[in-house]
Every structure is written in C-alpha cells, then in structure tokens.
C-alpha cells in the first residue's frame, strides 16, 4: 500500500517536473534546457518574497509564478528572438542560460536548512495504515488539476487552439495571422510558470539548493524522452513507470540504486523504441 501511495506521489512529482518542459516543446519546438534552472529560481523568488519582503505565503507564491512567467517571456524576446529557427543556437542558448542561472545561485550561496519554503498544509492522515501528510496529497491534487486544466486550455480556448495550430504547421498558422514570435514567447512563459507552480508545491517537502535544478532538468528530460517528446499521454505513462520503478527499487533493492531506474529506462527505450513510448517515429516523414 505504501508503495502504491508513494509511487503515485513520486510519479506525479515527475510529471510536474516535466509538464512545463513538454508544454513549451510541444507548442514551439523549443527544447528549454533552462527549465530546471527556472524551477529552482522561482523557488528562491518565492522564498525571498516570504523571508525578505515579509509577504504572506499565498501572495508570494502567486508573485513567484507570475515573475517566472515573465522571465520566460523576456527570455524569449531578449535571447531567443534573434536566433529563432537555428536549432544549434537555440539549444546552446537555453542550455547556457540555465547553467548560468544555476551557477549564479550557487555562487550567491543559496544553500542550507534556512532555505526552505513553508508547507502549504500541515498535518497528515493515515490511509490504510500509511502515514501521508497533506502536502503530498496536495501535490497529487495539483498534478491532476494542472493536467486537466492544461487539457481544457489547449483544446477549448482561443490561445490554446493557436498553440495547437503552431504545433501542427507553423507556416499555415502564420498565414492565418497567428504570430509565431508571440506564441513562442507565450509558450516559454507558460512553461516557466508551470515550472514555478511545480516548484512551489514540491519544494516545501525538502530543502532548496541550486543543484536541484540539475535534477529537475535530468528527470524532465528523462520523462520526455521515455514518453516521447510531443505526447502528453506518453509523458504521464513515463512518469508513472519511472516513479513506481524508483519507489519499488528503493524499497526492495536499496535507495542508492534508485538512479539506475531512469538510466536504464532511457537506455532501454533508446535501444528498443528510440522515439519514446508514445512518440511518432517521424525521422523520414517530418519533412515530406
């Protein structure tokens, strides 16, 4: 039972890590390698609002989400605009920007027990003899809520439909009056905001340090690759496989072997089905 519950929690956490990354990639084809950095950065922004400005928690969380959305937006206009479409440059710039943020945070010395976000909800309950605190349940709730919200947003709002248009055929969408730069910037903004939401619900469960940013990036990429890049259902399935894999490994083999799970998942997927579980093997047909 506890495997089931903690497996679900781990899986939802992984899905939350990946959500922003895969949203951005799905819309504008930008692989945002700064995703992990934005995640931890928004955690620190929230922390600063609470502890240095003395704002209440909910206001700070809201501000952090807003600001990191703005950062994503600005990131596009300042850095990516001039190199849009050059795959190599896009990769390099997001990658370098992410590392720069993380290293700057490390350098500023954000490390230690005092850097942690307060819990949303205190206390906990017992489900069939397994103690679960409310925060973890809240994470599950947020994860499911966000997935549903995202689905509704993409399928039923004007901007969401524009997103899908761009994702399917950029040129046609352009000719229909959808501006690809705006959509690109918005996709980054939404991706970063989602990273911030994930950070604010997940980070209270542990301490904050900048190296978490690398972990988030690693896990997000792993889930995205295992699930298949453009596929939301693939992303969810992949998070559950890796999440449960990790919890089971930790329980029956030993916690230090947990890292084997994503590594072997990647190697297996690459060997058997390189485009991911739900990905389309488009290498030939994409440019017909």
């Amino acid at each position: 039972m506890s495997t089931l519950i903690y497996g679900t929690i781990t899986s939802i956490v992984l899905a939350l890590y990946t959500l922003g990354f895969s949203l951005t990639y799905g819309i504008s084809g930008l692989a945002n390698f700064a995703h992990g950095a934005l995640y931890i950065l928004s955690g620190f922004i929230a922390w600063s609002f609470i502890n240095q400005a003395g704002f209440p928690f909910f206001l700070s969380a809201l501000l952090a989400i807003l600001i990191s959305g703005l950062i994503g937006f600005a990131f596009y206009w300042v850095l990516l605009l001039r190199i849009r479409g050059i795959a190599l440059s896009e990769l390099i710039v997001t990658f370098a920007a992410g590392i720069a943020i993380l290293e700057l945070l490390t350098w500023r010395g954000f490390y230690g027990i005092q850097y942690s976000l307060p819990l949303f909800l205190r206390g906990g309950i017992e489900i069939k003899g397994v103690a679960v605190d409310y925060q973890r349940l809240f994470v599950i709730g947020t994860g499911i809520f966000l997935l549903i919200l995202l689905y509704l947003f993409v399928h039923h709002t004007k901007i969401g439909l524009a997103f899908r248009g761009i994702a399917q055929n950029e040129r046609t969408a352009l000719s229909l009056g959808i501006e690809s730069d705006w959509i690109g910037a918005l996709s980054l903004a939404f991706g970063s905001a989602l990273a911030a939401v994930a950070a604010i619900v997940i980070l209270p469960m542990g301490i904050m340090e900048s190296t978490i940013g690398y972990n988030v990036l690693i896990y997000a990429l792993t889930v995205a690759i295992v699930g298949g890049l453009e596929s939301t259902s693939g992303m969810i399935v992949a998070s559950f496989i890796i999440g449960f894999g990790q919890v089971v490994t930790a329980r029956y083999i030993g916690a230090q072997w947990m890292i084997i799970v994503p590594l072997s998942a990647i190697i297996l997927v690459l060997a058997i089905r390189p485009s991911g579980l739900f990905g389309k093997f488009k290498e030939l047909e994409e440019r017909v």
């Binding site: 990769l91 995205a224 690459l270 390189p274």
Partner: peptide
C-alpha cells in the same frame, strides 16, 4: 540509437547521460 532521431534528441541524451552516470 539516437542518430536516427531529430537533433534535439541527441542534445538531450548527451546532456543527460553524463549527469546520470
């Protein structure tokens, strides 16, 4: 296996493998 896929996969996999290792 990655060389059959689009360039972004190669970048993602190479970025991640050393960290995971």
């Amino acid at each position: 296996p990655v060389v059959r896929l689009r360039g972004v996969y190669f970048a993602m996999v190479t970025l991640m493998l050393p960290m995971l290792l």
